[in-house]
Design a protein around this nucleic acid. Sequence first.
DNA 1: ACAATTAAAGAGTTTTATATCTTTAATAAA
DNA 2: TTTATTAAAGATATAAAACTCTTTAATTGT
Lengths: 145, 145
Amino acid sequence: MGVFSRTCEYAMRAVFFIAHRTPEGTRVGIKDISEGIDSPAHFLAKILQDLSRRGIIHSAKGPNGGFYMTEEDLSRPLSDVVEAIDGVQIFKGCALGLKQCSEKNPCPLHHEFKAIRNDLTKLINGTSIKSFNEDLLNGMTSLKK
Amino acid sequence: MGVFSRTCEYAMRAVFFIAHRTPEGTRVGIKDISEGIDSPAHFLAKILQDLSRRGIIHSAKGPNGGFYMTEEDLSRPLSDVVEAIDGVQIFKGCALGLKQCSEKNPCPLHHEFKAIRNDLTKLINGTSIKSFNEDLLNGMTSLKK
DNA sequence: ACAATTAAAGAGTTTTATATCTTTAATAAA
DNA sequence: TTTATTAAAGATATAAAACTCTTTAATTGT
Ligand code: SF4
Ligand code: SF4
């Protein structure tokens, strides 16, 4: 596995996809999303239900229903998605899996690892979904496989 | 989970522990190691068997047997351990789990993420087990929980 | 040769992550 | 009010990771 769990990868891709596809109060269905980001539809449904319950994205049932994101949703940092799925371990946890981190008595990887962890936190926490989305709209980036 | 799998965390801790405990041709048994790094003994045995088969550490059966590391073993980068257990995904894989990485058409996280991934690679690949071990011997770092 | 010690190997079990399928509830439009 | 459409929820199923227990093989010292 990479840095994030597969579930979390799907979640992030889906969030970018929804953000990209629902600019003006429109909605996008689970089928479109799962095809657009290449993930199993039913599994992704579970993930989006979870994000929706947490208020990270929004959804509406019925005809013309689907998933969408409000301006407030878009202004959230990507870390909200990651923490909802994978928790904070990736931002706070130890490289060697030790329970207590001591600055006084650190494990061999401590100093460099901490810097890397901080950079990751800064990237994921310090940038809004919207700003990633703007890159997508500018055609600079892509979610296609 | 943190950056590495739990199995990989055990492997790294065990390697540092063995390096620390077998300075002059001595050996250390699975029991001592598993207690020293707080991991399940039989499970760790499997992991060390694997590392031993790959020549990353060495072992000897019988009385006064156990695990040990040669000078050559110690000079290896920690990335050998990580790659043996978790593979190269962590160093090469995409944040969003996309299959093909395109510099031309990158995913939204690409640029910053790549930098972080490179830093991690540099840390794990660019430093020998011995040098971590020297920190341990100097009492600067610890594996105790 | 024999007994003791140690890792290696084999064969599970348990837990967690990932994935699928079915049924229900909400909404909208006719 | 009925039908179509959509997400939510529930119930499993499958696969992978983590862990345990038992047996075997190698080595040492007596
Ligand atoms: S010493 Fe550093 S790497 Fe180790 S657990 Fe603490 S913060 Fe994490
Ligand atoms: S675009 Fe960047 S983050 Fe995305 S898969 Fe490629 S290298 Fe990884």
